[in-house]
Computed example of a mutant assay.
Amino acid sequence: MSAFRYRTTALAATTTAVLALALTACGGSDTGTRAEGPASDSAPASAAKSEDGTATKVDAAAKTPATAKGGTTAGGGTGGSTGGGTAKGTTGSASTPLCTTKDVRISAATQDGPPYTHLVLTAKNTSGHKCEMKGFPEIQFLESHKQNIPSVAKSKPEARIVLDAGAPAYALVKLSDGGADEDVEPVTAFAVWLQGGDGQVAVRAPGAEGIAVDPAKYKTGYWTYELRNGADDF
C-alpha cells in the first residue's frame, strides 16, 4: 500500500513507538541517549531545518543541496560549516578515539524524489577534537523490526573516516523502491547507534509526515567523507 494512504493518527502512534524504541531497544544503552528537536546548523551534503522553517534536500545527480521540503536533526553539540563544498576529515592516528553520540550531531534529509526512496544521514563532529566514524550507522526504523537494517558492502570506504572538529561524515540510507503498491510503514523518528561508541540517538525523519519505509528493501551505506557515484548507488 502507498505511503500516502497513511493518516496523522497512524503517524502519531508510530512516532511514539519509535521514540520509545530509541530509548529502550536492544543494542544501545541509556548512556548518552538524546532525542532533541530541529537544529539550526546545516552541512554541505545534507540538510537541517533552520529556525525560519527553510529546509534543503540532497540532489543525487549533483550531490549538492537543492531547495526542497524536509530535513530535520537530532543530537547534541553546536557549530559547523555551511555551503561551499564538502569538509573532509584527516587520516588521524591509531590513538584517535571513536566518535560517540556525544561527539556528533546526526541529521537526516531526503534525497531526490518524490517518491522519496533514500535518506542522507549527516554526522557532524561537534566535540572539538578528532574522532573516527567506524563502519556504518546501526539503524532501527520500526518497533516491529528490532534488528539493525543491513549494510551495503560496496559502499565501504578504503580508508578510515577520521573527522576533524567541525567536519561531517555522510551515509546513504535506502528506504524503499518507491512503488505505489509497495508494503511500506510510516516512520517519523528512528534510532541510530555508532559502532564502537556508547549511547544512541533518536533522529527525527524529515517532512511533516515523516518517511515511508519498506522492511524488505531498506539498507544503509557506510560512513564516508562524501557521497560517491557508484559506491553509493543502491
Results as ranks from 00 to 15, higher is better:
residue 19 L to Y: 08
residue 131 C to W: 11
residue 218 Y to D: 15
residue 30 D to S: 12
residue 179 G to D: 14
residue 111 Q to N: 11
residue 63 K to D: 04
residue 107 S to K: 15
residue 12 A to D: 15
residue 44 P to R: 01
residue 26 C to Q: 13
residue 33 T to S: 03
residue 229 N to D: 14
residue 195 Q to A: 07
residue 200 Q to C: 05
residue 206 P to T: 04
residue 218 Y to E: 07
residue 109 A to F: 06
residue 118 H to M: 10
residue 127 S to W: 01
residue 118 H to I: 02
residue 69 K to Q: 03
residue 145 H to P: 07
residue 174 K to M: 01
residue 7 R to E: 08
residue 19 L to F: 02
residue 80 G to Y: 13
residue 58 V to L: 08
residue 133 M to F: 07
residue 88 K to C: 10
residue 185 E to H: 03
residue 99 C to K: 11
residue 80 G to W: 13
residue 119 L to P: 00
residue 158 E to V: 13
residue 146 K to H: 04
residue 110 T to F: 03
residue 180 A to Y: 10
residue 9 T to M: 06
residue 196 G to L: 07
residue 132 E to C: 11
residue 30 D to M: 01
residue 143 E to A: 09
residue 136 F to T: 04
residue 192 V to D: 10
residue 5 R to T: 14
residue 137 P to M: 01
residue 31 T to F: 03
residue 1 M to D: 15
residue 98 L to S: 09
residue 154 K to T: 08
residue 220 T to W: 10
residue 95 S to K: 06
residue 134 K to G: 10
residue 220 T to S: 15
residue 42 S to M: 04
residue 103 D to L: 09
residue 145 H to K: 15
residue 15 T to R: 09
residue 102 K to P: 05
residue 47 A to C: 13
residue 11 L to A: 09
residue 183 D to W: 03
residue 104 V to K: 05
residue 164 D to Y: 02
